[in-house]
Design a protein around this nucleic acid. Structure first.
Lengths: 334, 334
DNA sequence: CTGAAAGCGCTTACAG
DNA sequence: CTGAAAGCGCTTACAG
């Protein structure tokens, strides 16, 4: 069965391709096509199940109704949940999302941008890494809407949506201090991205503001791409050797590794030792005892991203760039 | 900055578009283009950063180097992990994946198939639901490779890759019985898909083979799309009212809800009461005590899916359909 | 109220 | 060894 083209419909309806095209694209009124013709053509389209070839349409119009989403890793629940929400919202507005993971590699990120470009995506949603500033700037000079989320890039002048990582981190540490904790550790990653730096800065500032001396010994920076076993051993070293009464884990997967360590060395969370994890995870509520977390407002982030994209896509003029910082929520569980 | 076209390259190199095209597509030798010309053109392409327009290429050739992946829900960790593996493997072979979630809706699944079709994806990987048999059969008559995974569809004659759900479930129940359990419950969903039915059948058969009478009272079918609060209350009813000494949860999210119930009603997992969860989840290893699980071989599933797709894509003749059933692994933790 | 025709950027059969 | 030209399936400026 040959797939139908607009020409087949035109022949069947005994009108020109132009007329069919106008009807498909809802320009029938505007082009004053007669009611009779509209009905006839619509009936044929309906009965035949004809679907316009989007590839041809894209080639002609230069846009695709596809939004490219570039994230670090779809198997990380933060990203998969965000992706699902964004997909959902975009879908309702007639856009498809095509996404791909950079796995924290600059080369792969660049490749992805190129591949999206050659597929003529209409807009980009990117959780960026350092090293792709230039590529993003090229998209911008091409007049493509670009929304960064989760992480910002200092040298790129575009839209950004993300949680207030500095304050979330700051408040977490303050809550420890209010509980009387003095030796507060931070387990974070060595990825050089803004949202991780902010968490670190929040940690440091909260200590200083409360008269506690910052000590490098209490901060572990876990190498991004290493085996979990290595991570576990580093965290174990920290927790065993120092007299620590509280830990902030800067990502949920680090917290998962940390909880495994606690289980191994049989260190209990309680009055003597407190933990907060950044980004929620199903394991945390379930844990005995439940783990307090910093929750990013996923729904709000996704909604803001989509709104920014759509307003740019529908506006003829260049809109002003927006930086939307959304507060994160500290959920204390016990 | 106007994006470059093949014509620009041809003009710059002072050769025809045809020649440039042959070179880009690696047909230079075959078409006996001279070394000098090849080098000149490649240099210009390299320096200009020209990337062929994939849309135009697709329109002309009728394929896209894109594989469509249709799953139930990307935010479910089983799917996001599989998706990541498939994406990764496809990418290495020059294919892009575009994926979307059906959210268990037949209408959305049909729409997705249509949208992928009009985008001319080369092949389909589908975790299907009942009600889209006809749509899939249309793809097959179109000669598009289709691989079903995770769930099979009885009336569709195509390739399938999935775990051996019947045996995994059967063995889980047997392991309970060996521990001396008599009142074994099953918490499953009411989705009418094969992999869920098989888990149920395995449960039933294992009981029968071991001389334990099957009882409807010990099986709870949770409605798919309901609020978690409702799910929790149903599981609570089961666990509180019956004298049950073991439970198999047929999906990881049901197990998560179940563990929440146990925490609420303060029922301990141990010698008196055992639990196995289908599909692993980070929360299970971490739980106190650790939860035994049935692990599907994600890596192997993804690899098999991709291999089947690629062999079909590269073969000129219609290959025989394959049904690959991969054993799942019961991981007993304590 | 409707249509013929150009053109989006490629690939490829054919010709020389 | 290389090129002119048709055509993939659309959209849209222009003409009538």
């Amino acid at each position: 069965m040959k797939t139908l083209s607009i020409k087949d419909i035109a022949v069947q309806a005994n009108v020109s391709i132009t007329t069919v095209s106008f009807i498909i694209n809802g320009k029938a009124k505007e082009k004053s096509i007669s009611e009779a013709v509209i009905e006839k053509v619509e009936k044929i389209i309906e009965e035949s199940g004809y679907k316009p070839n989007q590839i041809a349409r894209s080639l002609r119009t230069g846009n695709s109704n596809i939004i490219g989403l570039i994230i670090e890793d779809i198997s990380n629940s933060f990203f998969s949940r965000i992706a699902r929400l964004i997909e959902d919202k975009a879908y309702k507005r007639g856009y498809k999302i095509i996404y791909s993971s950079t796995e924290n590699s600059v080369d792969k990120a660049k490749e992805l941008i190129n591949m999206f470009k050659s597929r003529k995506v209409d807009a980009y949603i990117i959780s960026p890494i350092k090293g792709i500033e230039e590529d993003i700037n090229m998209l911008l000079t091409d007049n493509k809407p670009v929304i960064l989320f989760d992480r910002n890039l200092p040298n790129v002048d575009t839209n950004y949506v993300g949680a207030d990582h500095f304050n979330a981190s700051y408040q977490s540490i303050e809550s420890f201090i209010k509980q009387g904790k003095k030796n507060i550790a931070l387990v974070t990653t060595d990825i050089d991205v803004q949202q991780i730096t902010e968490r670190y800065d929040g940690y440091k500032k909260a200590l200083e503001d409360n008269g506690i001396t910052y000590s490098d010994d209490l901060v572990v920076k876990i190498h991004f791409n290493q085996e979990e076993a290595e991570t576990i051993s580093q965290i174990k070293t920290l927790l065993e050797s120092k007299k620590i009464d509280a830990v902030l884990f800067a990502t949920n997967y680090l917290a998962i590794s940390g909880l495994k360590v606690l289980k191994q060395i049989n260190k209990k969370i309680g009055d003597e030792f407190a933990v907060i994890a950044y980004d929620d995870h199903e394991a945390f509520e379930l844990h005995t005892p439940s783990i307090s977390t910093v929750q990013q407002p996923l729904e709000e982030i996704a909604e803001t991203v989509i709104k920014l994209i759509l307003s740019q896509l529908s506006s003829k003029t260049k809109l002003e760039n927006q930086q939307v910082i959304i507060p994160a929520k500290l959920i204390i569980r016990d």
